[in-house]
Design a protein around this nucleic acid. Structure first.
Lengths: 258, 258
DNA sequence: CCAATAGTGTCTGTTAGACAGTATGAA
DNA sequence: TTCATACTGTCTAACAGACACTATTGG
């Protein structure tokens, strides 16, 4: 029985309401099989933490970072707090959104504990401080394939599947790709990010370009980056040949099946 | 303080975890300004219930139906239970999905009570039993415009806005229109349902038809209804001229901005 | 000159969207 | 005959997608 609130619940109350955060990032590593400038290998990864080996619930299992919310904060605030605690991201904006609430009897052997799951997209660069002070190695990035094949704590496998599906949809219908890219990027980088999150998505590079910069409905999603003299900016970070730099605008077309 | 679970929360616990359901339906009434057969007037409506005038929280305010979940059921099950209790829908399938979880300090003056909001789409016909045994008139359908302009209980205005936005998106990207239509329907009915939920969506009727039955990517969303002799079925319910009947398939194209 | 990327050009069939026009059948 | 719907047809510009091609430049 719960004695907290004076006039309310005739029902028993949950034993706590935590938030759990699926933190996605894309890591990029230089290709090893060539010495020319080339696009890096990118991988979609997810941050997991290993539970206390002495816990009475899922000891030693890997799980999403998270923690209990309290009466004086919103769920969003709780999730963001947990995110920043875990990643040591301080001032930058982070993209974090609620996925959904989960409860199935028995999901937590510790009692009646639903969870509100969030997903966050963080840039590899923002995560640079992460590995540094992480001696404990009880927090690690796993590729989503690895994570999906593991037996995670609680119902976190289900949550991961849902979160992955959600970010794949969002990747193709919104401009969240920008969370994984620098402010200014080349078309090849953008395409690579999309393909990393949604491996089933494939297009001809040249058609991709035409569509994104040349068609009425898509034109405006991205625009070419220009310097203070209004000259088009280029990069040759990933190729000998210089590539135009682009940036996202706020425009996102809405598509309908009808 | 909470004494329910032995080993768990060092934190205080919520005072309950209810679900609230946004029940949408489309009502249709014959046009009054003509005597010819014509398409009905359709309106998107939402089911609200009036709170006890003696409640200490939002007395007399209108609110979404809902109620507390318990430890032994999933959130989905709780929501569906509440939905059926309120609408007296018994055996039929209903479309109900989680919207998201809400908590802001003070949203419920009664304590620390988050809510998990759901939205449900029910067919006018399934709701026929609703008005019948409803003498109390403490439950009513409001048009969304009405509801949006009212001051609802708790944070239900915000929830309604989110739910409306969600079903508008889903209406244009999935085949949820079928929840508001009979098994077999005419193209005009379908178009009318879409326009009722998303007033900003407008297309030429004839282009709508071509797109839906004539183009590669859209073809297959709906198919013509045929009788046992494989003859195309027609209806003249809404017009002198007979109209082909269609049904939804399971195919829904996925669209991308890239 | 090769590798790896950046980008242009071209071609065909498809599609979007505007709009005109014909058909049906009850009142 | 009119009304409200059901449908077909036509035209143009735009688009999708395949694929061939040239350009750049560090090593």
């Amino acid at each position: 029985m719960n004695s907290a609130s004076v006039s309310k619940p005739v029902f028993r109350s949950p034993d706590g309401l935590p938030t759990d955060i699926c933190i996605f990032t894309i890591t990029s590593e230089p290709r090893k099989d060539t010495k020319n400038k080339s696009l890096p290998e990118r991988k979609l990864k997810i941050l997991l933490i290993q539970r206390d080996p002495n816990s009475d619930r899922f000891p030693g299992y890997w799980a999403f970072p998270g923690g209990f919310s309290n009466e004086h904060e919103t769920l969003d605030a709780c999730a963001e707090r947990e995110l920043r605690e875990e990643t040591h991201i301080l001032n930058e904006n982070v993209h974090i959104e609620q996925l959904k609430a989960y409860y199935t009897p028995g999901r937590d052997p510790g009692g009646w504990i639903p969870t509100v799951a969030y997903y966050a997209l963080v840039n590899e660069k923002s995560l640079s401080g992460f590995k540094a002070d992480d001696d404990a190695v009880d927090a690690r990035l796993f590729t989503v394939e690895e994570a999906l094949s593991m037996k995670l704590a609680f119902d976190h496998n289900k949550i991961l599947e849902d979160a992955l599906k959600r970010i794949q949809e969002k990747m193709l219908q919104t401009n969240i790709a920008k969370e994984f890219l620098p402010e200014e990027f080349t078309l090849s980088e953008l395409l690579q990010v999309i393909e990393t999150v949604v491996p089933t998505y494939t297009v001809d590079r040249s058609n991709f370009e035409k569509k994104l910069v040349g068609t009425k409905t898509r034109k405006g999603i991205i625009e070419v980056a220009r310097d203070s003299q209004d000259r088009i900016k280029y990069s040759n970070e990933y190729s000998q040949n210089k590539a135009k730099l682009y940036r996202f605008t706020d425009y996102v077309p809405f598509l309908t099946i009808y």
